[in-house]
């Protein structure tokens, strides 16, 4: 996925001079995320700028440049650092258009890294997408693979609204076929696997795990799961989720973020509002426990939802029987 993001950035810089990028260590070093390599050599230090460790000023400068007519890309090395710049996200980027009556656009992309799995512990491993999706005024894009990442990033860069583009650190090394030419992917949910028995709704690094779980469910239990990658939390493409839930009557939501207040709760609520009478059981959530991300290998592996937990939830909802009323 790293190469796909890098390619999208090169295409973007090559196509529009108003696009520039600021962030910590993004120039010669190529970014802590290792996604911006080659940009400064090709497009120069005026458009690819290393910054001091000043997340508030970095994100704020992105917002200000966007208002002033540029199309900045800000790299926030870890989504955890939202804590250091949240005012600029929450009260500036998200509010400006509405607050100024629709007369001022903020065409800003904040690329950042989320997720556990690499032993980075509590302050460098979080999944904070629900906090962002809760704030009206911000697009939230969270790809699960290299192909989607390239197409969604180019789409996000053309968006006239602030977008937080969340890359899971465990996906950077994952490979898939990515065409070299430019292409875009709209803000849509993606049905990754067709199935009739149960709907698994997921995103980011949990998509692969859900697909693996679906194969195992099929071979071991004869359960045919449909797997949907939401890809974009705002704007949410709800229709495929509703359609699938209507068809299967059973829904399991899988995300890596901790369960309490996670985006799974929002998805469950919206789905039941539309298909309550078609549901054959409760909508279950597979998520991390409500604790910070631990360091030790065995604890972290226990923290991140795995295939067995997905299978467990699916079999639970498959075996659910309504008690007589």
């Amino acid at each position: 996925m790293r190469e796909a993001i890098n390619e999208a950035l090169h295409i973007a810089f090559n196509s529009d001079e108003n696009i520039f990028m600021i962030g910590e260590d993004i120039a010669t070093y190529g970014g802590q995320l290792r996604c911006s390599y080659g940009l400064v050599e090709r497009f120069g230090p005026e458009r690819v700028r290393d910054t001091p460790i000043s997340e508030m000023a970095i994100v704020g400068a992105g917002v200000g440049a966007a208002i002033a007519g540029k199309r900045p890309i800000v790299e926030l090395s870890y989504i955890d650092f939202l804590g250091s710049c949240f005012d600029q996200v929450l009260n500036q980027a998200a509010k400006i258009r509405y607050m100024y009556g629709g007369y001022v656009n903020v065409p800003l992309v904040i690329r950042t890294q989320c997720g556990a799995g690499l032993g980075n512990a509590a302050q460098h491993s979080q999944s904070l997408e629900a906090i962002l999706a809760h704030i009206p005024g911000i697009r939230v894009v969270i790809p699960s693979n290299a192909y989607d990442a390239k197409g969604l990033l180019l789409h996000a860069i053309r968006d006239n609204n602030p977008v937080v583009f969340i890359e899971h650190k465990a996906l950077y090394k994952k490979k898939c076929h990515v065409p070299e030419d430019p292409y875009e992917i709209d803000y849509t949910s993606d049905i990754k696997r067709k199935g009739d028995d149960v709907t698994i709704i997921t995103y980011s690094a949990m998509v692969d795990r859900s697909l693996q779980a679906a194969e195992q469910l099929n071979s071991e239990f004869g359960i045919d799961a449909e797997v949907i990658d939401v890809r974009v939390l705002e704007p949410l493409d709800l229709q495929p989720l509703i359609g699938s839930a209507q068809k299967t009557g059973r829904v399991v939501i899988v995300h890596e973020a901790c369960k309490k207040g996670g985006f799974g709760g929002e998805l469950a609520a919206q789905i039941q509002e539309h298909v309550f009478d078609r549901l054959k059981g409760p909508i279950l959530r597979v998520a991390a426990p409500d604790v910070p991300v631990p360091f030790a290998d065995n604890l972290e592996r226990q923290y991140v939802p795995d295939i067995s937990k997905i299978i467990e939830a699916v079999t639970e909802v498959m075996n659910f029987h309504r008690s007589e009323v």
Binding site: F20, I22, E46, R47, M56, A57, V59, G60, A61, G62, V63, G64, A65, A66, I67, A68, G69, K70, P72, D87, Q88, N91, Q92, I96, Y100, V104
Partner: peptide
């Protein structure tokens, strides 16, 4: 570019706008 209800909130925006002019 706008008045701001957050004390100090507009200062980084000014820096970004100045960066945009410089570029």
């Amino acid at each position: 570019l706008g008045a701001n209800g957050i004390v100090g909130g507009g200062i980084p925006l000014a820096v970004g706008a100045a960066l945009s002019l410089k570029i």
